[in-house]
Design a binder for these strands. Sequence first.
DNA 1: GACAGATGAAGGA
DNA 2: TCCTTCATCTGTC
Length: 172
Amino acid sequence: MKSELVELPVATSDGIFLAHYSERGLASLDFPHGNGLVSPDHAGRRKVLSKQVPLPVLRWHKTTTDALKAVLSGRAAKSMPPLDWTGKSEFQQAVWRAMLKLGPGKTRSYGEIAGAIGNPKAVRAVGGACGANPIPVLVPCHRVLAANNKIGGFSSGLDWKKKLLAREGIEF
DNA sequence: GACAGATGAAGGA
DNA sequence: TCCTTCATCTGTC
């Protein structure tokens, strides 16, 4: 089957994020690497040039750009592009949906997220699902803290998590 | 099937 | 308080 990803850069004041779109929607989002440069890993990845980008993807990309900039400045995204979670487990999707409900400045603990999806004991699994989140920032995994307001962890780097939380006025 | 993980809670020093 | 240990659940190899 063809599941070619369209790869488009998202320029923000924090660097150039890299968005990957499938025919279903936004599939993943990469944090800027170093000084906004794309990692060598992406160099060899098959991608579609901007000229060939389908119209729906261009619309999604605009929405994604707006949403990303809004979240990075501590505001709520006005609208979200469709998210492509194909191939992900039901559990992971449930965790991510629960996180999408968190507005700016709101936080939950891993235990509370676990409870929200009806499995209060699955706290460690929630941590695993957060780490597997392909769309950080837009799926606000940075708003999930450990118990007692501790920072917990962040797969893309604790610095990003701290920065994002600080912009939303969250104390931890 | 075994193991690891971005946790949480309880018990002891 | 702080540290250690154990219970629990899911994903990955």
